[in-house]
Design a protein around this nucleic acid. Structure first.
Length: 878
RNA sequence: GCCGAAGUGAUGGAAUGGUAUACAUGAUAGUUUCAAAAACUAUUGAUCGCAAGGUCAUGAGGGUUCGAGUCCCUCCUUCGGCACCA
């Protein structure tokens, strides 16, 4: 027997599979199965995380293929984005050249995994053939008002010199470079994802065992995370009229006042606690609130020192970064405006303040201050000695007790209640909240015309403009006369010019290429300029899984007919970090594509699997700066690709997070080496045909042998299906331990190889071909003949990876001799073996008398027996 | 603060309410070797015991059950996400 030398056999089979087209995709057949993994960013090095993600996906794809599915398992590259640009600046390489070289290198590295990718459907997002359809989709969105241009405060990274989406801000810092993000007023393009907020919400099921929601099987954590990010809140907009004396007399003749308000001369607040309205003792505006601007431009009469204070405060607030504003959470600051409003429910005159704890971007940018029932309002009122009134009391037993509670002052934060019974609330006093009081007051406020019901979302529109070079150009032309003019569809793609100055200057690098930038207006023909921004790279990754189906397609983003057959994605492997970004944007795109008639799908992936993270040997996240990066190439050289694959599958659950421990990879190698050694234990090595061999070996297998084999088939099948690769490997190890102690039949050996083949594709192919050598040699000779004659590409090579997946037989899963656990008073005392056919409670009770359990029953009466056939006999004495 | 997931040997981790610690790594001893590595064999939760065997152990404390790592309640810790969203 030759020694197991992985490096010798692995490249051999990788080449063979390639040449033979073993894993080529066929999108025409029935019984499709679409396996998707998040396409990699071409950073230039395939790291362990790629092996982990794609290894798991490859196991699954191979498994499904052997189960007879027509598997589509494409790969591509998410090639636009900042790192390429940063590399360009740092190393003076053009982003395009850098990216192309990286893609080339990474493909080579991927091949060492022995993957079963459908390489013939590759998608690379920086190719004009791809991004022209980004532009096409953009224009469709523009047509429908889903894409729009707006000016607003945006997250701005001063280091990357670009706008960031909310999802790109982590703890107030840029997700790429870690610089502190500031707020900047910028004109930019948005996608109106908020229009889709309701459709993006996941149905929340109280039954947690029900894994599906919106008819697909996505992790609970993703569904909950997205829902809380969308942050749907149902409440009311309540109108508070400004007190007339606050108005400026002088300006009333000429200027129309407060044009931006829905209803003139009033402030509209948003609240989801309308039932606390009797507890309002002040109003608070965000510093960005429009009325603050009116105030500062002297449209109200307030004394000048007050005005100066307001001006100071608003200026200060502007200077605070997002981070400062969030970390200063506990210390509430604010300033009185001099204005008053009337509380519509009781006619009280209430002061209006400005405070930066109120956010300009949420609701109406104004809230009612209810210090008696809101912790933040309480803190604010306490700081500025504002009136605090109790409107919610703890539930009371009697009305007299309630009256007493109503008088209790609120002396500390602990007294601030959001639930209980309403007090000091006019006719609503005594109602329980939230269930009774909230709808009652809401109805009443609406009927009186004081307020209307309103739904608010935490989700913001998606800002997609980036002032960077390496991305999809926005297909729009700015004309001094016609304004924003979309680039006509037939002129797509708007190609990204090669020659630009991409060093960051706070404006878009594309504008530096005059020849590209200056065009004539498609409408009027006069000189105009192209939009010089590029799109967020999340746009690229929002629909790539559609493009995979028909990457060469020229009549649209993808071939609808193919999509109707192959979509949705059946299983999507990816990282938990994409819960709020990529996976939600993709869902949004899918819904939009449905609306314009390109797909019938509401959800693009039937099942989502979040993978874990492989840490460095020191237990920290692998990073160059920490020097704990394990390079898969090195590990493959040491142990072989199969051992690395087995280790990755085995060392922790697929969704876990744990360190790479090299000495344990050796354990995976040892396992494969023992599998290799199994060939020596083959009891029947003959020249007979495989069919008669099967019959022979079946006959010689004992009940225990069959039990072990079928049990393993069952376990491996179910565990791969559930993406529990670690226990699938453990099941194979257990069977190997059993097989190592006996002679092995060809049947057992072949079955073992098939079950292991998705995880360790090379060694299993080698051993398979060795065992089925007669078949193989005949065919190889045959092949040479065929090649020289008619058919240049005969496909007679029968790979193990196209063999049918083993099926287990229920009848072998129980042994004739079964084991029954005997418990006395809940403690296991003995295990009895009994013939399956003879098992009965009476028989067992008889056997118990002579068992180890007997002494625990001496001189005791059995008061109760619980008998679960095939499992346990539980005896209870006094 | 809110939401979610999880706490099991020295370590990674297994366990449809039914013999907790499968499988692997490490460790100890032995075989082999001039020696080491590798390989192979045995042992390996704690504790009492010469042994047979017993007792105790799944973050802590209660509960349901013949029986709980698993279900329920309270608490602690860790990780992840969100966070002044009114």
């Amino acid at each position: 027997m030759k020694k197991y030398m992985p490096t010798e056999i692995e490249s051999k089979w990788q080449k063979k599979w390639m040449d033979n087209g073993t894993f080529a995709s066929d999108l025409t057949g029935d019984n499709k199965y679409y396996v998707l993994a998040e396409f990699p960013y071409p950073s230039g090095d395939l790291h362990m995380g790629h092996w982990f993600t794609w290894g798991g996906a490859d196991i699954f794809a191979r498994f499904k293929r052997m189960q007879g599915y027509n598997v589509f398992f494409p790969i591509g590259f998410d090639a636009f984005g900042l790192p390429a640009e940063n590399a360009a600046i740092k190393r003076n390489i053009h982003p395009q050249d850098w990216t192309r070289a990286n893609i080339f290198k990474m493909k080579e590295q991927f091949l060492t995994m022995g993957p079963s990718f459908s390489f013939d459907h590759e998608v690379i997002t920086c190719e004009p053939e791809y991004y022209r359809w980004n532009q096409w989709i953009f224009l469709k969105m523009l047509e429908r008002g889903i894409a729009y241009r707006g000016k607003s405060l945006a997250n701005w990274c001063p280091s990357c010199q670009t706008v960031l989406a909310n999802e790109g801000v982590e703890n107030g810092k840029c997700w790429r470079c870690g610089s502190e993000v500031i707020q900047k007023d910028v004109e930019q393009w948005f996608f109106r994802i908020t229009d889709y907020a309701d459709r993006l919400l996941w149905a929340v099921s109280s039954n947690l065992t029900l894994a599906t929601s919106n008819l697909v099987d996505w992790p609970q954590s993703v569904r909950e995370g997205q829902n809380s990010w969308i942050g749907k809140s149902e409440g009311m907009e309540i109108n508070f009229k400004l007190v007339a004396s606050g108005k400026s007399q002088g300006s009333s003749k000429n200027k129309p006042r407060l044009l931006t308000l829905d209803s003139s001369d009033s402030i509209i607040v948003y609240t989801s606690y309308p039932e606390t309205i009797f507890g309002v003792t002040y109003l608070v505006l965000a510093p960005e609130h429009p009325i603050v601007q009116h105030l500062l431009s002297s449209q109200f009469t307030v004394n000048s020192s007050q005005l100066a204070q307001v001006r100071d405060y608003v200026d200060q607030a502007k200077k605070k970064s997002e981070l400062e504003r969030k970390t200063a959470e506990k210390n509430k600051t604010g300033v009185f405006t001099g204005l008053y409003v009337i509380n519509p429910v009781n006619g009280e005159k209430v002061p209006v303040w400005i405070a930066d704890y109120v956010l300009g971007g949420y609701g109406t940018g104004a809230v009612m201050g209810v210090p008696g029932s809101d912790h933040r309002d309480y803190a604010f009122a306490a700081t500025y000695s504002l009136l605090i009134r109790r409107v919610i009391a703890p539930s009371a037993n009697s009305s007299s007790q309630l009256e007493q509670l109503a008088q209790e002052p609120i002396g500390s934060v602990e007294d601030v209640l959001e639930e209980g019974v309403l007090v000091n609330s006019g006719e609503f006093t005594g109602l329980r909240t939230p269930d009774q009081a909230r709808p009652a007051i809401a109805d009443w406020l609406e009927s009186q015309g004081f307020a209307k019901r309103s739904v608010q979302y935490h989700l913001h529109d998606w800002s997609i403009s980036r002032q960077r070079y390496w991305g999809t150009p926005i297909p729009v032309i700015h004309c001094p006369d016609c304004g924003i003019v979309p680039v006509p569809e037939e002129q797509l793609p708007v190609e990204l010019p090669y020659n630009v100055d991409y060093t960051p200057k706070g404006k878009s690098p594309l504008a530096s290429n005059e020849e590209w930038h200056r065009v004539s207006c498609p409408k009027c023909g006069k000189p105009a300029t192209r939009d010089a921004d590029t799109m967020d790279t999340f746009v690229d990754s929002s629909w790539y899984f559609f493009r995979y189906l028909s990457p060469q397609y020229k009549q649209g983003p993808f071939d609808k007919k193919v999509a109707s057959e192959i979509m949705p994605v059946d299983i999507y492997f990816g990282g938990a970090e994409h819960t709020l970004g990529h996976t939600m944007y993709s869902r949004f795109f899918t819904k939009f594509l449905k609306d314009i008639g390109w797909t019938d799908l509401e959800e693009y992936a039937s099942r989502r699997i979040n993978h874990g993270i492989v840490l460095g040997p020191d237990g920290n996240k692998m990073s160059k700066s920490k020097g704990n990066v394990v390079n898969p190439d090195d590990e493959v050289k040491k142990y072989g690709a199969d051992a690395v694959r087995v280790y990755l599958a085995f060392f922790m659950p697929y969704d876990g997070t744990g360190p790479w421990i090299s000495e344990r990879v050796w354990g995976a190698f040892r396992f494969l080496d023992r599998v290799w050694g199994l060939q020596e234990k083959l009891s029947v090595i003959s020249h007979q045909s495989s069919e008669s061999l099967t019959a022979d070996s079946e006959a010689s297998l004992k009940a225990e042998d069959l039990f072990q084999m079928h049990r393993t088939i069952k376990r491996v099948t179910e565990e791969i299906e559930a993406t529990k690769f670690n226990t699938a490997v453990a099941a194979l190890m257990e069977w190997l331990n059993y097989l190592s102690k006996k002679n092995v039949t060809k049947e057992e050996f072949s079955t073992f190889l098939k079950l292991l083949s998705p995880i360790a594709p090379h060694i299993t192919e080698e051993l398979w071909q060795m065992v089925h050598s007669s078949q193989f040699t005949v065919h190889s000779k045959h092949k040479e003949n065929l090649v020289s004659a008619v058919n240049p590409e005969p496909t007679i090579f029968k790979s193990i990876h196209t063999q049918p997946w083993p099926k287990f037989e229920q009848e072998y899963l129980t042994l004739p001799e079964i084991k029954i656990v005997i418990q006395v008073n809940g403690k296991p005392r003995d295990v009895l073996s009994i013939n399956k056919d003879q098992e009965s409670e009476e028989q067992l009770l008889e056997l118990v008398k002579t068992s180890k359990a007997a002494k625990f029953l001496e001189a005791k009466e059995i008061k109760k027996t619980v008998y679960i056939p095939g499992k346990i006999l539980s005896l209870v004495t006094d």
